[in-house]
Design a protein around this nucleic acid. Structure first.
Lengths: 199, 199
DNA sequence: CCATATAGGTACTGACCGGTAACACCCCTG
DNA sequence: CAGGGGTGTTACCGGTCAGTACCTATATGG
């Protein structure tokens, strides 16, 4: 029926639902997407959806859990690509973020967006968001420390906030606004903390 | 009936509706708040609401317009408080933002949050958001230029993204996370661009 | 070949959504 | 006093929300 239903080869419904939900939640917003439309776009129905997820809130939490895991895998790849070279890892991370932020379909960090959409502290997604953001921050701090600059925690938080800002800014001023300068800003900050950015 | 209805002295319904809507939209999110609950909390009813606002979308746009105007007034006061002294204005701005970001009821920038909640480019709120963010950025650029640092546009965008990041980060990691360091980060950036931060 | 598990289909619930129609009211002004 | 604009009240519209009951179809594995 729907576009995505054609990719229904042997992928089990749970995966199809999650894939479709991820796309819709990210592009249109969590509250804007109903479970009916998710089920339909996944080429299944609401009953099957509720057999795999106890509630929409749980589906949202799982959607965010997947993204958090993907982000973590991305960090692992970054580490493996420049083994033992924290400075190179940091530069590669910055470069990737700079590119991601200027993509035209960029709608910011799905986790951060979810935090905006779901202010209720009891929502199951809140724990996922908080833990992931904390985890990312800690990895960044460790990276800055290993890269050998002074005040590594300060540098890490600067880069963290800068990225967070660039991703949200891209949604209001577009990918060609201040967000497009994220890479250069990050390098300037690294330099200011005594980490060379020469390749 | 409701708490806010007690402040119903001589304030016309349009103002009451806007005040209540601002509070609810900001705290709970735009999509999470229905027009019925706004009308009820404003001590009036849906009909009166629709006599003053053609649609919920228009009410949302007006809510954001008010906030944008308030922010502009705040800038004007800042300018008047330190006439002719751009450096002092910049420091005062930074100080205010640092304080705002660590407030416990902080839920970030209402305009930026609205951009997250309303991805539809046709929504009347989008224009308000885009214009306001652009305007704020330009004011910040002018201020950095007047303060006499080198690369004023770069500094302004750095501060801009840092603030945007701090406000969104406060929603995931709380007011005591990286956001609490906004002030010091901003001063470091100013110093890096050759603007003294001594009082 | 049968049993069980998983998936699809349909129809439904009760609540809420944004938005409107019709009518009574009250206060201010002419 | 008459009139009218702004307000309040109630009931309603069609649509959508999250979530469920019940039944059928298919596929897999003993």
């Amino acid at each position: 029926m729907t576009l995505t239903a054609s990719t229904n080869g042997k992928i089990p419904p749970r995966e199809r639902i999650l894939a479709v939900a991820s796309d819709l939640f990210y592009r249109q917003g969590i509250r804007a997407v109903g479970v009916d439309s998710i089920a339909e776009a996944a080429g299944t129905n609401k009953m099957t959806l509720y057999r795999h997820f106890t509630s929409k809130d749980e589906l949202v939490a799982e959607y965010l859990r997947r993204l958090a895991a993907e982000a973590d895998t991305f960090w692992d790849k970054l580490t493996a690509a420049h083994p033992g070279n924290a400075r190179a890892q940091l530069l590669a991370w910055l470069d990737s973020m700079g590119q991601a932020v200027t993509r035209h379909d960029e709608r910011g960090c799905a986790l951060a967006n979810a935090a905006v959409e779901l202010p209720d502290k009891e929502h199951p997604a809140r724990k996922v968001i908080e833990e992931h953001k904390n985890h990312q921050r800690q990895r960044l701090i460790a990276l800055c420390r290993d890269a050998g600059g002074d005040e590594p925690e300060m540098l890490a938080d600067e880069l963290f906030l800068l990225l967070e800002g660039a991703r949200v800014c891209a949604q209001s001023l577009g990918p060609d606004g201040p967000s497009s300068r994220l890479g250069r800003m990050g390098e300037a900050l690294m330099a200011a903390h005594g980490i060379s950015c020469l390749r």
